[in-house]
Computed example of a mutant assay.
Amino acid sequence: MTVKHVRPPLKVVLVDVNPQVVQEWLAAFADTPEVEIRKGSLLDQHADAWVSPTNARGRMDGGVDAAIKRHLGAGIQLRVQRAIRDRFGGSLPVGSAVCVPSGATNPRFLISTPTMVASAQDVSQTLNVALACAAAFQAVHMQNEREPGSIRSVALVGMGAATGQVPPRVCANLMWSGYTLFHDHTFGDYDELRATVQGQLDDLDNEPQERVRIKPPATRTRA
């Protein structure tokens, strides 16, 4: 008899101190009630993993990155940058992510995914939020492939909505695109993920006022 193992559902929490971001999430994710939306600080969330929007070098010197570094200690930046160096040659492309042990019990893991190349870069005219959000969920999947069940809950902030100057509605719509793609498809690697997102969103207005569901490739769909 063959036993089919079913992946446990992933608890997703979207949390931000900006009430406008929270309001736009409530609209964008209205038909995805499994996603919890909260107003508050990421640092107060109990989850297996926190997602931190970062820059290509993993320098945690501003925004949410800096708050997490203060909370978890300077060692977290060293672990993030070591992972970027070992896996990506020292520069993490937008549309990629690293998942590292946090050194704490809450969260157990930190997922760093760049919304920008350099610190404090304006990314309001880009689709980087969709790429970063999709990459964060890909990192969850890859970690659970390595250690099944190690990430059962994840908390994310409004990506690019502060330092990156992305309007709250655009942030919410692009994060919805990244989230739904995670549910629809498992990617073999980050290159495939980036090609899929860019191939379908590059022709759109860089500030989409409506949600866009990214169509996954025909292969490797989730069972």
Score class of each variant (00 low, 15 high):
residue 6 V to M: 15
residue 6 V to N: 15
residue 7 R to T: 15
residue 10 L to H: 13
residue 11 K to A: 13
residue 12 V to T: 15
residue 14 L to F: 14
residue 15 V to W: 10
residue 16 D to L: 11
residue 20 Q to S: 10
residue 20 Q to E: 14
residue 21 V to K: 04
residue 21 V to L: 08
residue 24 E to D: 08
residue 28 A to E: 08
residue 28 A to V: 09
residue 31 D to W: 12
residue 33 P to K: 14
residue 33 P to F: 10
residue 35 V to M: 07
residue 36 E to I: 06
residue 37 I to L: 09
residue 45 Q to Y: 05
residue 46 H to N: 14
residue 46 H to R: 12
residue 47 A to W: 07
residue 49 A to R: 04
residue 50 W to F: 13
residue 50 W to C: 12
residue 52 S to H: 00
residue 57 R to Y: 14
residue 60 M to D: 01
residue 62 G to Y: 12
residue 68 I to Y: 08
residue 70 R to Q: 09
residue 74 A to S: 11
residue 76 I to V: 11
residue 79 R to C: 03
residue 81 Q to K: 08
residue 82 R to P: 03
residue 86 D to M: 07
residue 86 D to Y: 08
residue 89 G to M: 00
residue 91 S to P: 00
residue 92 L to M: 06
residue 94 V to Q: 02
residue 95 G to I: 02
residue 97 A to D: 01
residue 98 V to Q: 05
residue 98 V to P: 00
residue 102 S to A: 09
residue 107 P to V: 06
residue 108 R to A: 12
residue 109 F to K: 05
residue 113 T to H: 05
residue 115 T to Y: 04
residue 115 T to D: 04
residue 116 M to C: 09
residue 118 A to W: 13
residue 119 S to Q: 10
residue 123 V to W: 09
residue 124 S to A: 15
residue 125 Q to V: 13
residue 130 A to E: 08
residue 132 A to W: 00
residue 135 A to I: 13
residue 137 F to G: 01
residue 139 A to M: 03
residue 141 H to L: 15
residue 141 H to S: 15
residue 141 H to V: 09
residue 143 Q to T: 13
residue 145 E to C: 04
residue 146 R to S: 12
residue 150 S to Y: 00
residue 152 R to K: 11
residue 152 R to V: 00
residue 152 R to S: 11
residue 153 S to W: 05
residue 155 A to P: 02
residue 163 T to V: 09
residue 164 G to C: 04
residue 166 V to Y: 12
residue 170 V to Q: 07
residue 170 V to E: 07
residue 178 G to E: 02
residue 178 G to N: 03
residue 179 Y to R: 00
residue 183 H to N: 10
residue 184 D to R: 13
residue 185 H to C: 06
residue 186 T to V: 11
residue 187 F to D: 04
residue 190 Y to T: 03
residue 194 R to A: 02
residue 197 V to Y: 00
residue 201 L to Q: 08
residue 204 L to W: 11
residue 210 E to I: 07
residue 210 E to V: 09
residue 211 R to H: 11
residue 212 V to C: 14
residue 215 K to Y: 11
residue 215 K to I: 14
residue 216 P to M: 09
residue 218 A to R: 15
residue 219 T to Q: 14
residue 222 R to G: 10
residue 222 R to A: 14
residue 222 R to V: 12
